[in-house]
Design a protein around this nucleic acid. Sequence first.
DNA 1: CGGGGGCTTGAGGCCACTCAACGATAGTGG
DNA 2: CCACTATCGTTGAGTGGCCTCAAGCCCCCG
Lengths: 228, 228
Amino acid sequence: MFVRITTDCKNRNTTLDDFGMTSGSDAIISLNEIFYKKGIEIYGEKEPSEYVYQVKIGAVRSYKLLSDGRRQIGAFHLAGDIFGLANGSAHRFTAEAIVDTTLRLIKREALDRVAETDPVVTRTLLGMTTLNLKHAEDHMLLLGRKDSVERVATFLVEMDERIRTSQVMALPMTRRDIADYLGLTLETVSRALSRLRRGGLLDFVGNTQRQITILDRKRLREVDCQRH
Amino acid sequence: MFVRITTDCKNRNTTLDDFGMTSGSDAIISLNEIFYKKGIEIYGEKEPSEYVYQVKIGAVRSYKLLSDGRRQIGAFHLAGDIFGLANGSAHRFTAEAIVDTTLRLIKREALDRVAETDPVVTRTLLGMTTLNLKHAEDHMLLLGRKDSVERVATFLVEMDERIRTSQVMALPMTRRDIADYLGLTLETVSRALSRLRRGGLLDFVGNTQRQITILDRKRLREVDCQRH
DNA sequence: CGGGGGCTTGAGGCCACTCAACGATAGTGG
DNA sequence: CCACTATCGTTGAGTGGCCTCAAGCCCCCG
């Protein structure tokens, strides 16, 4: 459980706008940055939710565990994403840094205080929660009804929209992480990727298998056979 | 597509409290009741969300479809439940009456108007959306990582808490509905129920298979091996 | 250069799906 | 009242997709 405060943490006072929130009032809230090494837990399921987080650099996984260790990742949080917004006293997921990660954080208590007097903030919270809900609803369809190739195709389309830079997307997570996100095993994910590659829909770049170029977006979206 | 306005619809004006919402202001909003015959669609996915609904009598299923007809039910709505709260312009599910159902409904537009001036209503909306999100998150774990018997056990525990009356719960939905909720086939649901019955955890009551008594709640919760 | 983590691929097994048969019940119409 | 039909549920037999187990490669790093 190694946590280090970054040296570039100036503990400056900023407005909520810096945190991606619009606010009618000019509330000043103190923002800190914390650095988490790859693999380190940010918070645990059932822990009191003291902070809300935004990814500055890096990537985070949010997951639940069954008593025998089976893991379901509910979401990946990438640069710019806000997470840990429990809207209740306790976190519903465990969050871990996938790679070395720098987070901004805001005290939940302070956020609540602002939200009480500023309806715009409450509405922003509602909007973010609705986005999370929409993602979870789509993911239920994937987990309940899609086969392995469809799941991986859906995953690639989602990641393509979120982290593509110049034709190549560099995935921060391992095959195991992808598998636990998609309700599969890492071997099945690997086989599905190989099938898509053999089908000419994508290709690996470089000598690591984490960088992927999508060669045929149209066909990939067709494999992910979601309605519209 | 048969919709009939119930004769006992008085079109009376009521406060939001009647709809299960607390409000600081004494907003008056017109409430209607509509009757839906078993199997009738209430709204479709992607349709503009004109109303929010509360189940007065009956039961409703909310689902998504893949292009080839595979169905994933995201939630069942039972007496008292509020649903159709899209927090956006379009519905994200199709909703259908499972049995003959009477709904109360409220114009979304009116709700938005009240929420604009009344922060308490916005906060209530946030609370309801958060509850929906929590349910979806738990359901992702079920769909991604639980086996068939665990899924059915989880389902029974959930329903037991929601519709138990005097030791017996009367399920309104078919085995197919349960299967599409749990990401299984109807045969697998049937087999899992038989296994739980043979194991002495539950029993069927009457000559229909829709009425179930849970004989051993403790062991049923153990089968649903979720962490705490 | 040895060791470990990450990834791929193959072989075999198992759980859930598919297909099918059958019984029970409810609704319909002659 | 009794076919007749449709819907719903259970159970069995066989299949298949994903999981399990294992081997081997590559890369990074001490």
